[in-house]
Simulated assay, not measured.
Amino acid sequence: MRIISGTYKGKRIIAPKNLPIRPTKDMAKEALFNILTNKFDFQETKILDLFSGSGNITYEFISRGSTEITAVDSHYACVKFIQQTTTNTFNTPIDTIKSDVFAFLAHTNEKFDIIFADPPYDFSLDKFTEIADLCIENKLLNLNGILIIEHDTHTDLSVHNCFAESRKYGGTVFSFFKNI
C-alpha cells in the first residue's frame, strides 16, 4: 500500500500477509481524499476509522496532518499493526481500539468530523444500514460532519434517510451521509 499525498507521499507500507484485509485501491483513495480536502482542514478534524484493517485510510489522514484519529478493528493483529506503524513509521500515536465496530458505535460518547467505515463487502444491506443508523442516532457526527461507507457496486445505500450522495470509482463506491 502507498501513501497518495501529504507529508509521506509515496511512502510504501507493507502489511503482514496474514491480516484479513482488503485495502482501498489507490485510485478510489485518491478520489476520496480529493473530495475531503475541499471540505475539511485535516489538522483540525477528528477522525474515526472503522474496520480499519491495515490502517490504509488512517495513514492518509496522518500524512495530511490529522492527529486526532481513532482506528477501530476487531482483529488483534490489525490493531497491533496500526499501533506499530503509526508510532514507528509516522511517529504519530493514535487511539487504536480492538472492538467489534457495532459495540463500539453503540457505546462511545465521542463526536467526530469524519467517520470512515470500510466493512467487508459481503455484509448484508442491514449491516451497512446499521452502521449509518448507529452513527446518526447516537449523534456521533459533529455539526457538518460526514459518514462515509465504502462498499461495492452491488450495494445501494441511497434509501437511508441521511444519505447525501455516492461516488463510484471502479468497483468501489463511497456513500456519504450527513446529520438530518
Score class of each variant (00 low, 15 high):
Thr7Glu: 15
Lys9Gly: 05
Lys9Ala: 05
Lys11Leu: 14
Pro16Ser: 10
Pro16Gly: 11
Lys17Ala: 14
Lys17Ile: 11
Lys17Gly: 08
Asn18Gly: 09
Asn18Cys: 06
Asn18Thr: 14
Leu19Tyr: 02
Ile21Cys: 01
Ile21Gly: 01
Pro23Tyr: 00
Pro23Asp: 08
Pro23Thr: 08
Asp26Trp: 00
Met27Lys: 13
Lys29Gly: 05
Phe33Glu: 07
Ile35Ala: 01
Thr37Pro: 01
Thr37Met: 03
Thr37Phe: 01
Asn38Lys: 09
Glu44Lys: 14
Glu44Leu: 08
Lys46Pro: 02
Leu48Met: 06
Leu50Pro: 03
Gly53Val: 12
Gly55Cys: 04
Ile57Lys: 03
Thr58Tyr: 03
Glu60Ser: 08
Phe61Asn: 04
Thr67Asp: 00
Thr70Gly: 05
Ala71Cys: 01
His75Cys: 07
Cys78Gln: 10
Val79Glu: 02
Val79His: 09
Phe81Pro: 01
Phe81Ser: 06
Thr85Leu: 08
Phe90Arg: 10
Asn91Cys: 06
Thr92Ala: 14
Asp95Pro: 04
Asp95Lys: 15
Thr96His: 13
Lys98Val: 04
Asp100Arg: 15
Phe102Tyr: 13
Phe102Gln: 15
Phe102Ile: 15
Phe102Gly: 15
Leu105Glu: 09
Ala106Cys: 06
Ala106Tyr: 00
His107Arg: 15
Asn109His: 14
Ile114Phe: 04
Ala117Ile: 04
Asp118Met: 02
Asp122Met: 04
Asp122Trp: 01
Phe123Asn: 13
Phe123Val: 06
Asp126Gly: 00
Glu130Asn: 15
Leu134Arg: 11
Leu134Asn: 04
Leu140Ala: 05
Leu141Asp: 04
Leu141Phe: 04
Asn142Asp: 08
Asn144Val: 07
Ile148Trp: 13
Ile149Asn: 06
Glu150Met: 03
Glu150Leu: 02
Asp152Cys: 11
Thr155Asn: 13
Thr155Lys: 13
Ser158Lys: 08
Cys162Leu: 02
Ala164Trp: 06
Glu165Thr: 09
Arg167Thr: 01
Lys168Glu: 11
Tyr169Gly: 00
Gly171Gln: 12
Val173Met: 06
Val173Asn: 05
Val173Tyr: 01
Phe174Pro: 06
Ser175Trp: 03
Phe176Ala: 05
Phe176Pro: 08
